[in-house]
Amino acid sequence: MADAATSPDPDLVSALRALSNPVRLQLLLWLREPERHFPMDQAIADPAEVGVCVSHIQAKAGLAQSTVSAYLAELQRAGLVRATRVGKWTHYRRDEERIAGLLSQLGRTL
């Protein structure tokens, strides 16, 4: 096992693990341009500021709500998205600052 000085950062490993699933990666790509990928006329909050409702993400993905929620929870644990509650609905948006930091760290690591 590598020593602590040369071990990859656990946050970076977590992010790469989250992105290794093609569906999770697709969700993150859709959230990059929510106005292009999700119905704006049905949004109850500003998708750019608050995020996209799980029900809209689920409808686009064509997967069970529980599956989509699990995928988004993994992206959230990795710090790639942020969740915001609006009433009884949960909205997700990308954490652009965190993503930029992870990309920079990946560049320094590799």
Score class of each variant (00 low, 15 high):
residue 87 G to T: 14
residue 66 S to T: 12
residue 33 E to F: 13
residue 32 R to N: 13
residue 7 S to F: 05
residue 4 A to W: 12
residue 40 M to S: 07
residue 103 L to T: 09
residue 36 R to W: 06
residue 110 L to P: 02
residue 41 D to I: 00
residue 107 G to R: 11
residue 49 E to R: 15
residue 100 A to R: 09
residue 53 C to G: 03
residue 17 R to W: 09
residue 41 D to C: 00
residue 53 C to P: 02
residue 62 G to S: 06
residue 2 A to W: 03
residue 13 V to D: 11
residue 81 V to L: 09
residue 89 W to Q: 15
residue 65 Q to K: 11
residue 64 A to D: 10
residue 90 T to F: 08
residue 8 P to C: 05
residue 64 A to E: 15
residue 28 L to W: 01
residue 13 V to T: 14
residue 91 H to V: 05
residue 1 M to S: 05
residue 55 S to E: 08
residue 54 V to G: 05
residue 85 R to Y: 07
residue 49 E to K: 12
residue 109 T to K: 10
residue 82 R to T: 14
residue 86 V to K: 09
residue 99 I to E: 11
residue 70 A to I: 04
residue 37 H to C: 07
residue 3 D to S: 14
residue 57 I to E: 07
residue 30 W to I: 13
residue 56 H to Q: 15
residue 95 D to W: 01
residue 14 S to C: 11
residue 46 D to M: 08
residue 1 M to L: 04
residue 91 H to S: 04
residue 21 N to P: 04
residue 110 L to E: 10
residue 18 A to I: 03
residue 81 V to E: 12
residue 67 T to A: 14
residue 18 A to W: 00
residue 94 R to F: 02
residue 84 T to Q: 14
residue 109 T to N: 11
residue 66 S to I: 06
residue 48 A to C: 05
residue 25 L to E: 06
residue 96 E to C: 00
residue 29 L to P: 03
residue 37 H to E: 04
residue 31 L to E: 04
residue 43 A to I: 13
residue 52 V to A: 05
residue 36 R to C: 02
residue 37 H to G: 01
residue 51 G to V: 04
residue 3 D to Y: 06
residue 78 A to K: 04
residue 108 R to L: 06
residue 52 V to L: 00
residue 100 A to H: 01
residue 66 S to L: 14
residue 66 S to F: 03
residue 103 L to F: 13
residue 99 I to M: 13
residue 21 N to Q: 09
residue 41 D to V: 05
residue 61 A to C: 12
residue 26 Q to L: 14
residue 24 R to I: 07
residue 87 G to A: 14
residue 35 E to S: 07
residue 95 D to A: 07
residue 90 T to P: 05
residue 84 T to K: 15
residue 65 Q to P: 00
residue 20 S to D: 09
residue 79 G to Q: 03
residue 69 S to R: 14
residue 33 E to P: 00
residue 82 R to I: 12
residue 55 S to G: 03
residue 110 L to G: 03
residue 3 D to G: 10
residue 49 E to P: 04
residue 18 A to T: 09
residue 23 V to K: 08
residue 40 M to A: 14
residue 30 W to P: 12
residue 74 E to N: 06
residue 88 K to Q: 10
residue 77 R to C: 08
residue 46 D to K: 06
residue 89 W to V: 10
residue 23 V to H: 06
residue 17 R to G: 01
residue 97 E to D: 12
residue 108 R to W: 01
residue 6 T to C: 00
residue 72 L to S: 01
residue 8 P to N: 02
residue 6 T to F: 07
residue 62 G to V: 02
residue 26 Q to G: 09
residue 105 Q to N: 00
residue 2 A to H: 10
residue 21 N to M: 07
residue 73 A to R: 14
residue 48 A to P: 00
residue 53 C to I: 00
residue 59 A to N: 11
residue 95 D to E: 13
residue 101 G to K: 02
residue 16 L to C: 11
residue 98 R to D: 04
residue 1 M to R: 09
residue 48 A to I: 10
residue 16 L to M: 04
residue 59 A to W: 06
residue 11 D to H: 13
residue 65 Q to L: 13
residue 55 S to Q: 15
residue 109 T to R: 15
residue 42 Q to H: 01
residue 6 T to Q: 08
residue 85 R to H: 08
residue 4 A to P: 15
